[in-house]
């Protein structure tokens, strides 16, 4: 239909893609340079020599960087599991069980999700200290669950709204209780919603900084963003190690985003549309 030359369009698209992507490309290139290459003048645009020594060095000399990634993974998975289960139950109750204060509760949940995380720090740090939750996975998972449950409830409630309620009613007529309906009917039928929400919550948890910084004070318990940010260098920031660790720490997010792009975008925009 429209056969106009689309050069301008493609130029703009290319520009956007390049701007979005070049810092990540530059990071990856840096991770393949040797120390001399990183601090060379004029700078190397392409690694010369192209080397894997930074990656090998991380595995042999800086295992704590791998520990950070493992920590992030444990916290992310734990947070996702808890928020999906509890948030799913809540969203189901609030959207389907005709609770009298459901509307008020939903708005309240939305309101508290706007609290600035830093406002929580003095109190959370003190309480976690007193209850022995500092430097524990349980502690940070609990904190992240608190931060991301509001989002989960809203996302899943808006997903449930798209399911025909009659199937659940048929299940009641068949003799199921609400918990069984949730587990055997609602969960399997809304798995795309759970997948999208779960992925986003995992990314949120992986990326979260202030609480992870304050509630995990021991080096061995730090999550990837915090651990890498605080990684001690002898003189200045050891960029060869940092860039390599950063690449490793963002790979999970890159992979998840790439594979589940549709679900994540759909989930985010649906969540924001509410």
């Amino acid at each position: 239909m429209n056969q106009k030359p689309r050069f301008g369009l493609y130029a703009l698209v290319t520009l956007s893609v390049v701007i979005s992507f070049f810092p990540i490309v530059w990071l990856i290139l840096t991770s393949f340079k040797n120390t001399a290459g990183i601090y060379a003048w004029p700078p190397q645009y392409w690694p010369d020599p192209f080397t894997l020594e930074n990656y090998i060095s991380i595995f042999t000399n800086s295992p704590e960087l791998l520990r950070y990634i493992l920590n992030s993974f444990i916290v992310g998975v734990g947070t996702t599991a808890i928020t999906l289960l509890l948030g799913g139950l809540s969203a189901y109750a609030l959207s389907r069980l005709g609770m009298r204060f459901a509307g008020v509760l939903m708005v309240g949940i939305l309101a508290v999700s706007m609290f600035p995380p830093v406002s929580l720090l003095p109190s959370l740090f003190q309480n976690f200290l007193n209850f022995g939750l500092l430097n524990t996975y349980t502690g940070l998972i609990l904190a992240h669950a608190g931060l991301f449950l509001p989002f989960t409830v809203w996302m899943l409630a808006s997903y449930f709204a798209t399911l025909p309620v009659e199937i659940e009613e048929a299940a009641r007529m068949d003799g199921m209780g609400f918990l069984r309906i949730f587990l055997t009917i609602v969960l399997p039928l809304s798995w795309p919603g759970f997948v999208a929400t779960g992925l986003i919550v995992f990314i949120f948890s992986w990326n979260e900084f202030p609480l992870a910084l304050v509630l995990m004070t021991q080096n061995a318990m730090r999550t990837a963003p915090v651990g890498i940010s605080l990684y001690p260098g002898e003189y200045a920031f050891p960029w060869e190690t940092i860039s390599t660790a950063t690449v490793l720490a963002i790979i999970p997010v890159l992979v998840i985003t790439a594979i589940f792009q549709k679900q994540i975008v759909g989930g985010l925009t649906a969540g924001a549309g509410k």
């Binding site: 509890l86 948030g87 139950l89 809540s90 189901y92 109750a93 609030l94 069980l97 005709g98 609770m99 009298r100 459901a102 509760l105 949940i109 508290v112 999700s113 609290f115 406002s119 929580l120 003095p122 109190s123 959370l124 003190q126 309480n127 609990l142 904190a143 669950a145 608190g146 931060l147 449950l149 509001p150 409830v153 209780g177 609400f178 918990l179 949730f182």
Partner: peptide, 28 residues
């Protein structure tokens, strides 16, 4: 009975949100 079930389903979430988001603000 339905309402009671609903309250049961919502309670864990409300407790976590209260502990992590609301109580700290009050304590602050």
């Amino acid at each position: 009975r339905t309402a009671l079930t609903g309250i049961g389903f919502v309670t864990p979430t409300v407790i976590i949100i209260a502990l992590i988001l609301i109580y700290p603000i009050i304590q602050s």
